[in-house]
């Protein structure tokens, strides 16, 4: 069943067309990777889908409903969440509070004024469970700003995960993380996502990770989709690989 669908999505900044006529869809329960050279428009696409940007043209459908004009918070309500390329956290709050914030926002507890947040055992326990799921249970009382880079990226994903979305966008969850930790992070994310049956779209540069963890790969270059298929097909397509790898050469 199609969960998310885009129709002729387009976005430009002045002369620069960053997302050009993109139509694709994601099925329920799929883990899709978005790959392509830097500046190909992957993050812009995710920004459009999460309402961080408004498209100039085109439509976004979620569960068959047109959500193009919905705001960030409205999209979160219907179950679309995202993480960020550069860890985007509540720096002064503890890791546990970062998660509990998502949970209480999700469960409509934002406007609870006169009861102690840390006495809400329901929220606290759930937040604790999510922290353990992401292997951060020993960091629960540490302010987010004092966490290591890899831990911050994990927490960033965990904050989005705690919203219990049906669709989760992950913008380079392993960037800025040492190669050693990349697999660990992806294992964690992948098992969390698959256990809950969450549909995910991941932007990723590391092709080993992409081939290992995704059900399907969408290749984007110059704002357009140039290939779309299961990992084995993409791996064998030399032209596509050279576009992707060429970009990584440039990156270095």
């Amino acid at each position: 069943m199609t969960l998310l669908e885009t129709i002729n999505l387009k976005k430009s900044f002045g002369e620069n067309v960053v997302v050009n006529d993109v139509s694709f869809n994601v099925d329920d329960g799929e883990v899709v990777s978005l790959v392509g050279p830097n500046g190909a428009g992957k993050t812009s696409l995710v920004n459009l889908l999460s309402a961080y940007l408004t498209p100039d043209h085109g439509q976004i459908l979620f569960k068959g409903r047109d959500i193009t004009s919905l705001s960030v918070s409205e999209r979160i309500k219907i179950g679309i969440a995202r993480s960020f390329q550069i860890a985007n956290l509540f720096d002064e709050l503890s890791a546990l509070d970062n998660i509990s914030l998502s949970i209480s926002a999700r469960s409509g507890k934002t406007y609870t004024f006169l009861s102690l947040a840390d006495r809400d055992t329901g929220v606290q326990n759930e937040a604790g469970n999510i922290l353990s799921l992401f292997g951060l249970d020993d960091k629960s009382n540490i302010p987010a700003k004092e966490l290591a880079q890899g831990e911050r990226k994990l927490l960033d994903v965990a904050v989005a995960y705690a919203l219990k979305p049906s669709f989760l966008f992950l913008d380079e969850p392993t960037s800025g993380v040492s190669t050693r930790d990349k697999a660990k992070i992806m294992d964690t994310i992948s098992s969390a996502v698959r256990n809950e049956g969450v549909t995910a779209a991941i932007i990723e540069h590391d092709m080993d990770i992409v081939f290992k963890y995704s059900d399907r790969i969408v290749v984007i270059a110059d704002g357009r989709i140039i290939a779309d298929g299961p990992p084995e097909n993409i791996r064998d397509d030399k032209d596509v690989i050279s576009v992707i790898m060429g970009s990584q050469g440039n990156e270095v």
Partner: peptide, 12 residues
């Protein structure tokens, strides 16, 4: 701490 992220956990 972070207005953008607050928006992205659904806070008005």
């Amino acid at each position: 701490d972070n207005e953008t992220r607050a928006q992205f956990v659904g806070i008005n």
